[in-house]
Design a protein around this nucleic acid. Structure first.
Lengths: 160, 160
DNA sequence: TATTGTTATACTCTATAACTATA
DNA sequence: TATAGTTATAGAGTATAACAATA
């Protein structure tokens, strides 16, 4: 009881990188999917926001536009995403998952989920709930810098 | 209430990468420290285990030996770590922080901690405690693969 | 022969700067 | 002129394979 923000910060620095490394290896070692974590996140975002633009994806994920453009090259080449010009504004690009993209995304999601589920299965309900609540708590605090103001500027003090 | 392992897994995939990206940018943007997260973790480990070997660090951090060797080149060149041959076994290397290494580590730690503390300061005590407990719960589940068996091999029950 | 570490090499990820096309 | 995106280029980070030195 009585964890200070400073202690929590130290824990974050210690634990989060380990979790990331494991997730990264899971994604990359999958037979057919073989995605980087960033690629996975991009597919998931485009799935939820079909027809979105490159800028929007870059902003959400937290990559620069050139980096995202190059990453997208790879996903388009692998036929996981279709990239077309917007008819209304031909500078814009519209992004959608292909059927194959949806399949691969689901496969990666399932593989990772299955593995993590296995790892997490050693936890009892109370611990599981704690982790779930903690992640829900952290989520709004660590949106990409550009999005952050949308949430943060209105509640710079007390939290819900 | 009643989060399933599967739901928690999805949250991990969604939230953890965002936290990582923020931490990474913090470390890299610091004026004097300018460390990658991995470099930071290496310094912290060597600080806690002064005189440790290269293999030990690589294993703890989850890098291959050649990768760690190269990373260490950088830290030695920046005079943050001293690397000497072990007198007892000349194949081994002993690693220690320099005074400068300790200073830089502390500076990076403080900068990151200060920023995270600011971010976390919007949380009330209960939420903070939840996050703290969750990280403590996750820690043993995501040790580096090589260390993992020490914890996991005794409880490898049913999962496909 | 086995172990500890290094060197050589290559690939992925990401960034900044300069550019093109459209508005 | 401003915006959306791409191309060119470079640097960090990591891996595998081959090697050297020591035990």
């Amino acid at each position: 009881m009585g964890a200070t923000p400073s202690q929590v910060a130290s824990e974050i620095l210690d634990v989060i990188p380990s979790v990331m490394r494991e997730v990264r290896e899971l994604m990359r070692s999958h037979r057919t999917a073989d995605l980087s974590v960033t690629q996975f996140r991009v597919l998931a975002f485009v799935d939820r926001h079909s027809g979105t633009s490159l800028s929007a994806v870059a902003e959400h994920i937290g990559l620069t536009l050139p980096s995202m453009s190059k990453l997208m090259d790879g996903l388009v080449e692998r036929k996981l995403i279709v990239r077309e010009f917007d008819r209304a504004d031909r500078r814009r690009v519209t992004l959608k998952l292909t059927a194959r993209g949806r399949t691969i995304l689901e496969a990666a999601r399932k593989a990772t989920r299955d593995h993590l589920t296995h790892v997490l299965s050693t936890l009892d309900k109370a611990h599981l709930e704690t982790v779930y609540q903690a992640l829900a708590t952290l989520r709004p605090l660590f949106l990409s810098p550009r999005e952050a103001h949308l949430v943060l500027e209105s509640k710079d003090n007390g939290n819900s």
